[in-house]
C-alpha cells in the first residue's frame, strides 16, 4: 500500500529526512517513534503533501501510484488521511460543512453521488457517538475554541467519517489525558481492517498500550535506525532513545 524508498526531504536549507525506507501493507498498523526533532512529523507532513518541505531524493508509492506527484487534495481523495498534530482552527466554517465538503470530494472521486445535509447527518451520527462527542459539535466552527483534547478527538472523528485507506496520525496522543487517549484509541481501532493501513507517529509508548501495532520503527536523525515488533516499544520505554541515537551515529 505504501512504499517509501530512500526518502530525503529538507525544510529550507536543513535536511530533515535522510533516507527513509518503509513498507506498509494493507491491514497493518505501524508505529513510528523517536525523539523530538528526529523527523517524525516531517515524514507525516511530506506524506500528506506539505509544500514547505522539499523532497530532494527517493520515492514514495501509494496504491501503486507516485504519491509525490499528487497534490494534497488528490492524496486525500485517494484515501490518504493525516490527523494533524496541531489541528487548525477555521473560524467561520462549520464542522458540518467542512466534513461534508471533504466527504463529497472523496465520493465524487469514486464516482459516488454527493450527500446532501440530511444524508450526511444520518451517516455521521453514530460516529459522533463513537467519539463521545455532542451533536452540537457539527454546528460549531472547525476547531475554534476547542480544547487540545477536543481538537484531537475532532481529527479522529473526521477520520471515522472519511474512512481513509491509509491513516497517518501525527502525535494524535500528545497532550491527551488517559480518558481522551482511550477514546482516540477506540476510534482508531474501529477503523482497523484488512483493507486499511495505519501509520502512528508518536513520541510516547503509552498510546501503543491501546493500539497494538504490528511493527514499530525508531526514527533518529532522519533515518529509521531500528525496526521490530510491538516489544520494541516497551524496550524504548525502558531504555529511552539515547542508546539508539548513539548506535545511529556510530
Amino acid at each position: 500500500m505504501l512504499e517509501i524508498d530512500n526518502l530525503h526531504a529538507r525544510a529550507e536549507e536543513r535536511e530533515i529526512l535522510r533516507g527513509i525506507n518503509l513498507r506498509l501493507k494493507a491491514g497493518e498498523v505501524h508505529a513510528i517513534m523517536g525523539p523530538n526533532g528526529s523527523g517524525k512529523s516531517t515524514l507525516a507532513q511530506v506524506l500528506a503533501g506539505r509544500e514547505t518541505y522539499t523532497v530532494t531524493g527517493g520515492s514514495v508509492r501509494y496504491l501503486g501510484r507516485d504519491l509525490l506527484e499528487m497534490k494534497p487534495e488528490e492524496r486525500a481523495r485517494e484515501g490518504l488521511f493525516l490527523a494533524f498534530q496541531y489541528p487548525v482552527e477555521i473560524p467561520g466554517v462549520s464542522n458540518m460543512y467542512f466534513l461534508r465538503a471533504a466527504l463529497n470530494a472523496a465520493r465524487k472521486q469514486q464516482g459516488l453521488e454527493e450527500l446532501d445535509a440530511a444524508d450526511f447527518l444520518t451517516r455521521v451520527r453514530d460516529k459522533i457517538r463513537l467519539l463521545g462527542m455532542e451533536d452540537s459539535l457539527l454546528q460549531r466552527s472547525v476547531n475554534e475554541g476547542f480544547s487540545g483534547g477536543e481538537k484531537k478527538r475532532n481529527e479522529i472523528f473526521q477520520m471515522a467519517v472519511l474512512e481513509p485507506k491509509l491513516a497517518v496520525l501525527d502525535e494524535t496522543d500528545s497532550g491527551l489525558d488517559i480518558d481522551a487517549l482511550k477514546v482516540v484509541a477506540q476510534g482508531v481501532n474501529a477503523l482497523r481492517g484488512r483493507e486499511r493501513g495505519i501509520l502512528l507517529v508518536t513520541h510516547y509508548q503509552r498510546l501503543l498500550n491501546y493500539i497494538i501495532p504490528d511493527f514499530v520503527h525508531v526514527l533518529s536523525n532522519g533515518r529509521i535506525v531500528r525496526s521490530g515488533g510491538k516489544e520494541l516499544a516497551l524496550e524504548l520505554e525502558e531504555k529511552g532513545y539515547g542508546w539508539l541515537e548513539t548506535a545511529a551515529v556510530a
Binding site: 500528506a48 503533501g49 506539505r50 509544500e51 497534490k71 494534497p72 487534495e73 492524496r75 486525500a76 481523495r77 488521511f81 493525516l82 494533524f84 489541528p87 487548525v88 477555521i90 473560524p91 467561520g92 466554517v93 467542512f98 466534513l99 465538503a101 471533504a102 470530494a105 472523496a106 472521486q109 473526521q158 472519511l162
Partner: peptide
Amino acid sequence: FYLRTRGLDADAARRLLTYAFANE
C-alpha cells in the same frame, strides 16, 4: 493546507477561507 488534506482543491479552499473571513 489543512483543507486540502481533507480533499478540497486549492481554489475551493481559498474561497471557503475567504468566506470564513467575512463570516465573522
